[in-house]
Nucleic acid binder design. Sequence first.
DNA 1: GCAATTTATGTACGCGCGTACATTTTCTCA
DNA 2: TGAGAAAATGTACGCGCGTACATAAATTGC
Lengths: 350, 350
Amino acid sequence: MIIIASRKEVAQLAGVSEATVSRVLNGVGPIKEETRLRVLEAADRLGYTPSALARSFARRRSGNLGVVMPYLPKARIFSAYYFSEILSGIGSKALESKYDLLMLFREPGGSMDYMNLFRTQKVDACIILGARDDGGERQAIQQLSEGNHPYCLINQYFEGEAFHVMDADHVDGSYQAVRHLTEQGFRKIAFLNGPSQYSNSRDRLKGYAQALNEAGIALDESLLFEGNFSRKSGYAAAELIARQLDRIEAVFAANDRMAIGLQQGLRALGISEERMPAFVGYDDSEAAELCTPPLTSVRVPFYELGCLAAAHVLHRLDASDSEDESEMNAVLHRQLSTRLVIRASSLHRN
Amino acid sequence: MIIIASRKEVAQLAGVSEATVSRVLNGVGPIKEETRLRVLEAADRLGYTPSALARSFARRRSGNLGVVMPYLPKARIFSAYYFSEILSGIGSKALESKYDLLMLFREPGGSMDYMNLFRTQKVDACIILGARDDGGERQAIQQLSEGNHPYCLINQYFEGEAFHVMDADHVDGSYQAVRHLTEQGFRKIAFLNGPSQYSNSRDRLKGYAQALNEAGIALDESLLFEGNFSRKSGYAAAELIARQLDRIEAVFAANDRMAIGLQQGLRALGISEERMPAFVGYDDSEAAELCTPPLTSVRVPFYELGCLAAAHVLHRLDASDSEDESEMNAVLHRQLSTRLVIRASSLHRN
DNA sequence: GCAATTTATGTACGCGCGTACATTTTCTCA
DNA sequence: TGAGAAAATGTACGCGCGTACATAAATTGC
C-alpha cells in the first residue's frame, strides 16, 4: 500500500511552512523562485496532490455541476436521444471549466428538494432536466431562485415564474410540422402529444392549433391523443388511432420514439401500408433517418441547449464570486429555434 | 437570502451539545427518546441538513462513484448505445446504494492518472469505460490494483494482468455471428473490426477465425477491415469494400453503427440492393431493428455489465471497511454471454 | 547607514462534521 | 439504600486545506 503524503510532509521535506506549500501549489502571493522549485520538487518526490475533498471543504465549493435526471427504474434513460444529446452538451462545457458532472436522479416519489443540493454543498450549480409542472417542482425551483443559486431548467418553463430556462421554440417547431402536413393537402391531422405537465407539450399544442387555424381547419378534440414519450406509449396509442383511421390522414407525434412506436403498433394491428397515415415526428433523432420510411421530424438543438445551460450556470457562478449584482439578477429565458427536416414519411403518396 | 443553519445553532436551540445533535442525526449511540425528538424538531425548525461536503471530509469518503468516459470533443458520446446502456446500469446500482455518480472525461491526451482520483478523494470507487490497451493505461490501472482501490473495467481486459474486469463473451458472440453466415452458405465473409487496442476487437477476430475454420474456410487477410466504431468509419470503409465486392458475399461488423454506416456508404456508391452483401452487426442496438433491412446483430447485456460492475466496486468498498482480506484479494474477471439476434439483413436472398 | 517599503515566509485558525474519551445521569440488584 | 453497571450526554480534537495576520528578510530611498 502506498502511503499518501500530505502537505505537512511536503513542507518538511522542502524545509518550509505548510502555508508556503499551499501558496506555491495555488500560485498565490509572491514566492521566491528558488523556494517554489524546492517545494515543487518535494511535492513531486512524495507524489503529493492536494485532496480535492479537503480543498473543496476549505473553499466551501464542491467543484461539482449537478445534473438532475428523471427517475427511471430501468428505463435506460441515457439511451433517449433527448437526454444523451443534452448531457453531451453539458459535459463538454463542464470539462472546459474544470467542473465535474454529478448525476442526480429524482427519487421515485417525484420532485426533489433542490435546495438541499446546495445546502449540503453537493453542487455549486445545477441543471434540471425533465422537470414537470407540478406544485412541488414549482416550489422547489422557487426556492432556488430566491436563494439566488445558479441553476437552469432545460426545455421546461413555468407559467408566471421568472425561472432560468434554456428552451427551444416548440410552438414554431410544431407549427412548421403541421403546416408541412396541411401544405401537402392533409386535413385530418391527429396529434399524439406528451403529458401536459410539460411546457413543451403545451407549446406543441399551440403550434398545432395555429397551423390548423391558418389552414382553415377546425381543431377536433377527438384527434388529440396523449402518450408519455416512450415508444411503448406510441405503440399503445396505435389501438385508439386504428379505430378511427378513416378519419385520420396524418399524425404528428411529439417525439420520434412515439411516432415509431405508433407506426409499429399500426403495422402490428394489420394496417396495410396503403392505409398508413403520414407521419411527422419530433426531435430528429438518429432513429428518424434509419426507420422505414424515413421519418420527417423537427430538429431540436439539444446539444446546444446543454452547452448554453451549462455556460449560463457557470457564468452565474463566476458572477456570484465577483458579487456582480447586475449579472446575478438577469434571469435567463431563451428559446433556440427549431427546424423541420422533411423525409419520406410525411410525403403524400401518389 | 436564506441563512444556512449549522450544527451549532441546532445544538443551542435543542439545548444539547453538538455531539448529541450529530449522534441523533446519524443514529449513533444510545439517545434518550425525548432528546432525540427535541433535536429533530430543532433541526427541522432551522431547516438544518448536514453539509455533505463537511461530512465527506470528516469521514474521508466522498460518496462518489466515478465513471471514466472516453474523451470526445463533440462526439456526443452519451448517444452511443453502448455507453448509454452501461451508464443506466451503473446509475441504477449507484442510486440503490446512495452513491452519487461522478462523470469523468479523459483528457484529450489519452490516458489518465486514475490514482489521482483516489488520492484527491474525488471518488471512493471507479468504473472505467472505453480503456484502450496501451502502456499508459496499463500502468495507470496497475497502480489502482496495487493500491487496492475498488475499480472495475468494463468490456476491456489486459493480457497478462489480473485486473478487475466485467466483460462479455465476444469470442463466442462473433463466432455465433459468423457461423450463422457460414450456415447460410456464405463463404466470402469480410470483417469490419474495431481498433485492435481493444480486447473485444481481438476477441471478435478470434471468434471470426474460429467460425471460418470450423467451416473449412481459410482466413483471407484481404477481407479484414478496420474502423473506429463510428458510423462515419463504416461509411468510409464502404469505398474499400465496394472495390472488391465481387469477392465478398457477407460482412460482419464489430458494431451496429459501422454496419449501418457501411450499408449507407455502399448505397451512396450506387451499389444496388441485389449486389448488396449480407450484414451482421454487433451490440443489438435499437437502430438494428429500425434500419432497413433490419440488422442481424449480437446482443450484449450492456445494462447488466453496468449493474454488475457497480455492484462489484461497491461491494469491495464495503469489504475494505470491514477489512475483509479475502474479499479484497479476489480479482474479478467475468464474462457475460452474448446472443445472436437474427433479422433480415443476414438472410440469404432466394 | 538607517528608516520606510516591499517581498517573502511563518503562525494560527476556521471550515462543519465524526468520534474517542471523559463525565454525568439513570438503572439494576443486592 | 448504596455500589456498580449501563445509558446518556458533554468535551475536545482531528480531518487537510485556505488564508488573514504577524513576522522576518530583502530592497529602496535619502
